[in-house]
């Protein structure tokens, strides 16, 4: 994957896109092979250890904290809070400044995804599209991401906001030199913002390169149409 760029991962249903994200993020262990990240073999590391190396992910079906507010769901995406300790948590002076900065960033992300007015609500009160947006807001919270894996960020999101989200991802990627891998089925919108693309079919990469060329590749068309 080109560093600091937005890479699109496409393929028909069941081609293994989400499985690939699960394997890279450590949610599933691979049956064989290894995962190399920045020259380090991370195959045996747990998800939280991979996160510490800069791998962040979102889930295709949002995994939200059902009893936490929208605000809280987003802010827990921010790592390194000194107040997350059974001892330091007792002393507010040790974490209040970090917390204020995290709150302010959270409001920023929620403003961007249009969820700010719902910040006190619980995830159960949101629509499907809003849940996807909340999942995305949380994915944008970590402090030093290097590789962000996003599974269908614009599924169920209206076209205008979908464009805004992908434009913003591209901007974050360029400004902060963060690599994004995006799984998406809405190719008409996504292709505009991707720098590179991979196509998968039956668990294997069948095409790679410039996004529009990948979409036009006969093997890719064949896998989508099943002919």
């Amino acid at each position: 994957m080109p560093r600091g760029k937005v890479t699109l991962l496409i393929g028909p249903n069941g081609s293994g896109k989400t499985t690939l994200i699960n394997v890279i993020s450590g949610v599933l262990s691979p049956d064989g092979g290894s995962i190399i990240f920045e020259g380090e073999d991370i195959t045996r590391l747990s998800p939280h250890e991979r996160f510490k190396r800069g791998i962040v992910r979102s889930f295709q079906i949002p995994r939200l904290f059902q009893n936490l507010s929208v605000m809280e769901n987003t802010i827990v995406g921010r790592d390194g809070n000194p107040g997350e300790s059974v001892v330091r948590g007792l002393f507010k002076s040790l974490w209040v400044e970090f917390e204020k900065k995290a709150f302010s960033d959270t409001f920023g992300k929620l403003e961007f995804t249009g969820l700010k007015r719902l910040s006190e609500r619980k995830p159960g009160e949101l629509s499907g599209g809003q849940m996807k947006l909340l999942e995305l807001s949380r994915t944008l919270m970590p402090l030093n991401p290097k590789l962000v894996l996003i599974d269908e960020p614009i599924a169920g999101v209206n076209p205008a906001l979908a464009h805004e989200i992908l434009a913003s991802i591209k901007k974050v990627s360029a400004e902060l030199n963060v690599t994004f891998l995006i799984v998406e089925h809405r190719l008409d919108i996504a292709v505009e913002y991707a720098d590179y693309a991979y196509a998968m079919h039956l668990g294997r990469v069948i095409a790679a390169g410039e996004p529009r060329k990948v979409l036009e590749d006969p093997k890719v068309i064949e896998s989508y149409l099943g002919v």
């Binding site: 998800p47 939280h48 970590p142």
Partner: peptide
Amino acid sequence: DDDLAIGVYG
């Protein structure tokens, strides 16, 4: 609420 999700967040 979700130990897998919090694990993915480090």
